[in-house]
Design a protein around this nucleic acid. Sequence first.
DNA 1: TAGATTGTTAATCGATTAACAATC
DNA 2: TAGATTGTTAATCGATTAACAATC
Lengths: 241, 241
Amino acid sequence: MKQPPGNPIGPAADEIADPLHQPGRSVPMATLERLSVYFNCLIQAEHEGLELLSSAGFEERTGISAYQVRKDLSHFGEFGLRGRGYSVPRLRHTVARILCLHEEQPVVLAGAGNLGAALLSFPGWRPYNLRIAAVFDVDPAKVGRTSRSLTVQHIDDLPETVARLEARMGIIAVPAEGAQRVAASMVGAGIRVILNFAPIAVFPQTGVSVRNVCFLSELAILSYLARCDREDEGQRNGGIL
Amino acid sequence: MKQPPGNPIGPAADEIADPLHQPGRSVPMATLERLSVYFNCLIQAEHEGLELLSSAGFEERTGISAYQVRKDLSHFGEFGLRGRGYSVPRLRHTVARILCLHEEQPVVLAGAGNLGAALLSFPGWRPYNLRIAAVFDVDPAKVGRTSRSLTVQHIDDLPETVARLEARMGIIAVPAEGAQRVAASMVGAGIRVILNFAPIAVFPQTGVSVRNVCFLSELAILSYLARCDREDEGQRNGGIL
DNA sequence: TAGATTGTTAATCGATTAACAATC
DNA sequence: TAGATTGTTAATCGATTAACAATC
């Protein structure tokens, strides 16, 4: 394996090399998407009390080939135990660090409608160390209401609150009309990445990443796959994540 | 261009060749995912009253390269007007047919919680011709309640209702614990494709397609991309859709 | 040790980009 | 016609699969 940059002789790193600094090349998005699948899988496995999981074990649980699993992980370092597999708790911890989920991060949420409520009440946030730290809406009927110990603030307060929280992650769960403006406001306030549920693609400034989630697009893809005249093709698991 | 299979001489197809039967090779998933982006874009453009849109225009609006747009569409036929671009209404119609969104399809929804409510109240279903035709839950407190002229049925009624509606598409919006059982029930009842929001990957039988949507995974990816030590890489729009 | 499984290099495959002839 | 833009073929690029030496 390549030496980590700098300090090529120093004390032998028998601990896992700091995975925050991936050596050399930048990581393909496909690898990153699968990494989040592995993380999910590891959370499950840890729940079950599993100590070790081999790349073949990952394949069984995720449908992603053992080759692929090993290749993906090798982007970040060597985490396996040859002849045995991967230590579930340790790899879970390592992947959390790679994904920067090892310490709590505040997330701000724009939109206090049904979707916002669904996100707030979602179980399973815990292992991700992400916490919705503020909720915003324009609707005067919603502003000021409290649920889950969060009071809905007016969207105009977003910049100030984002700055105070030093939040870097935002979720947009407002109707299409408002999305672009909310996005601009978030970016202006220092938000670096946005998860957008509004049914309109949000185009960020450079340096800001956006992922658009559109369930209607997902259904459109599935609609294609459901077409009667397709009894060929063993496409088992069409989707990622 | 390749002749469509059969009838190689017949009346010159000056109408669009039936796009339901893609010629030759099977369509890459990446192409299919982008196709749903084009569809979205066309709906928008039609809304704006745009008559023509060139592949360069698509690039501007979606971030997907003009090359890619033309290549993707060429999987299904020739829909453009050389020297002019694509007719927005006609291409919208054609893509709807490719995706099998040209006639109304019933969708069944398992889970009448916040997420279910968000899906039901989502605006923008119209152009997709998809209609949630039945809602199910296990919670006795929810069963029997009516919203948007749909009465929540007990999940045990799912098989019968799916059969009656001849539904082929299902959405799972129940907690993780229930997901696998609901999926099995859906598949047993004849559902062919499933959109799964439960935070656990559902593994289908052969012939059934599943797409798992997990917003926590999306946030995990974004968390990685937000890492302070990444001011390199001009990854503008990380996500698809 | 023998058996197992990793990490990595090489081979294959497929998708994206580029270029251009066809044609409106 | 000239200008524009498609559809498609060729070139490039990157990702997946395979194979295997390293090693626990």
